[in-house]
Design a protein around this nucleic acid. Structure first.
Lengths: 375, 375
DNA sequence: GATATTTGTTGCTGTCAGCAACATATGATG
DNA sequence: CATCATATGTTGCTGACAGCAACAAATATC
């Protein structure tokens, strides 16, 4: 039987179409034709494939006020492909089931025992997911992640834990494990304000300080960035990591993750001690940022987790100490902002990482009609 | 006239074939078939195209000792496509004309007056290049480069100089301008020891300290990294950039760029002052590296320019101060080495950047036979 | 209601890559 | 040395694909 040669081209175009719908939301066929640079008739054929396979839905176009026949509106069918995203935190586990196009189909949350190990957390995740059918599953974990293994997580108290294996044995399926900051960076980049920024640095305040990036318009895969352990004060405070003078130690991040709200409120109400603490932390943050900005030259920095609150209360201190540690040419291009998606960032991004893998698979194979006509 | 639809597929495959030959050197058709995952007959057709257009040359295969008909050997014809790479330094200008497959067809070097402006340097480059026909032209410049503009170069004494425009008016062709460290990083990654390392950081010691990267297996485009201005000693030595405590100021890099050889030799011969100077510089370098490693988590760091000599003389100091400023989990994966291509790195990499653009153009169009059969 | 404009649909065409059968070139076996 | 096994290049054929042109459909404008 002749393997259908140029069919790869069709798969590429088909998944490009679906990918665009997933990322940019409902669009007309005319817009898709323009955007993908293909012929009207080709778009028609691709849309017909995707419609038959149930991935998209077409609705007759509404008059736009312009002359001519209104173009058909195309949109993703959320249920056609779903991704499970799980976020592990110190005392709770959160789940989102996200459908094609980014629609959140389900949200759930359960408490977990502080100090629970990977197997226990995986079990809780399995219970939460129950027997939901999803195309892909991603877990976001705070700490240093390498492949499926959590090399080090002070928040969870794990070290060299193969959490991917834990999840696989608890749920019977393959999971991808990423760190929370990388997930959130992807989330903010794909569905937040920072849509399409070429070089984005996302800083996450959890029990520690971590970072995720987008470099040259691609979310960085590789492993995660433990930003909290940049040394800003050599020979300073002893850090729990064993080094001295880490930003994390100097800022006292562990406390912040619990007390950020009261501290910033107190500072705003005029409490001198709180105000001083916020200012000092902002200064150290600015110093660490200086090194990172010099080393990576991003277009934009987003503050997420409790860094969001801290930045809102100490922007001036952050900026002034950043100014002492970065070249003016780099500062000029740089924007500092708080993350738009807030606490939803990590789950949103984790789901998006899952969809990226799904689109990649669609680019490699196509099951829909071939299943029914084998031989 | 019907635009030949699926022809894009052919262009993609053809340029993938040529790209592989360019990067990996001569290969047999059988190896290419295996590597590209295409059919024997398809490889034959592509090779025939490229042979007709003069890009490749096929020679009858030599017996390998294994059974079966020996496979035809395919190799690039260097003269079929050439790239001009120019490296601008404080007192000299270097040129290399590189052919397809990485063969260096010509090398040249002329002195330039210290303090010469962009127009003068461009004129010298035009004279050096003479009327050589090249497919692409790249200039590597020490400093902070943004697009075709040199935002800041202390070595050349330029600021906001549109060197791309200077070159264009002097030579009548478009140039791409990149910074020396980025070029060298690409060179080491594509043709040096660090071939294929996913996350590579190349540090260049010139008048200043700059860096270039490969992230997730792709050379980072974007703008350059002024590593020398990472602040390692807040409130320390005043740096010429206006900040205080930059590594560059603490290390005294400006002196090193002239005196590195005598200093390291003196240190090795037992000169206490030189030895102490080398040790201290190594320590500060390690501190800056700590911040960079924490922020970027590379697999490998290469030392180029005079950092090569410094590292060879102070590896212990670099490693020990790096150990005080980086998490052990990150250090464990990290390799430190000197750059393999040495002084040739920047030119090699600049040429490679040109070839990348050339391959991209081939992917978009194909001129050879269409020129002769228009209509 | 007629015309201009834009879009979806249909049948046709040039091109492509895989395949199978055959030709070619080597090593292994007796 | 002849034959067989093995690996590779070549040729004609095939299923598939995307572009195109002509036509049909749906809207705005006058």
């Amino acid at each position: 039987m002749a393997r259908p040669a140029t069919e790869e081209l069709r798969r590429r175009n088909r998944s490009a179409l679906l990918d665009r719908l997933h990322r940019r939301g409902p669009q007309t066929r005319a817009e898709l034709t323009e955007a993908l640079g293909l012929n009207r008739s080709t778009i028609g054929a691709l849309a017909s494939d995707l419609s038959e396979s149930g991935h998209i839905q077409e609705t007759t176009g509404r008059p736009t006020g312009a002359a001519g026949r209104p173009s058909t509106l195309v949109e993703c069918v959320p249920e056609a492909a779903t991704v499970a995203a799980v976020e592990v935190r110190w005392k709770r586990l959160r789940l989102a089931v996200v459908g094609l196009g980014g629609t959140v189909l389900r949200r759930d949350e359960v408490p977990i025992a502080p100090g629970a190990d990977g197997a226990a957390v995986a079990k809780a995740a399995a219970a939460l997911l129950a027997d939901a059918e999803v195309s892909d599953a991603i877990a976001a974990v705070p700490g240093l992640v390498d492949g499926g293994t959590v090399a080090q997580s002070s928040e969870l108290g794990w070290a060299d834990r193969d959490f991917g294996a834990d999840l696989e044995s608890a749920t019977g399926r393959v999971w991808r494990v990423v760190d929370v900051a990388t997930a959130a960076a992807v989330g903010e980049w794909s569905r937040g304000d920072a849509h399409g920024v070429a070089n984005l640095l996302y800083l996450h305040g959890g029990h520690g300080l971590t970072a995720g990036w987008v470099v040259d318009g691609r979310p960085r895969r590789g492993s995660s960035i433990m930003l909290g352990h940049i040394v800003v004060n050599p020979g300073g405070q002893r850090c729990r990591c064993g080094l001295s003078g880490c930003v994390e130690a100097e800022m006292g991040t562990f406390d912040f993750s619990e007390t950020i709200d009261e501290t910033t409120i107190a500072a705003r109400l005029g409490d001198t001690a709180a105000r001083e603490m916020v200012r000092r932390s902002g200064e150290f943050l600015g110093l660490a940022l200086g090194a990172v900005v010099t080393a990576t030259n991003p277009d934009e920095i987003l503050f997420g987790g409790w860094l969001r609150e801290l930045y809102l209360s100490s922007a001036a201190a952050v900026r002034s100490s950043l100014a002492e540690a970065t070249l003016p040419q780099l500062r000029a291009r740089l924007r500092l902002r708080t993350a738009a998606l807030g606490a939803q960032g990590p789950l949103t991004g984790a789901a998006e990482i899952g969809f990226e893998a799904l689109m990649e698979r669609m680019r490699l194979m196509w099951l829909a009609r071939q299943d029914s006509n084998l031989e």
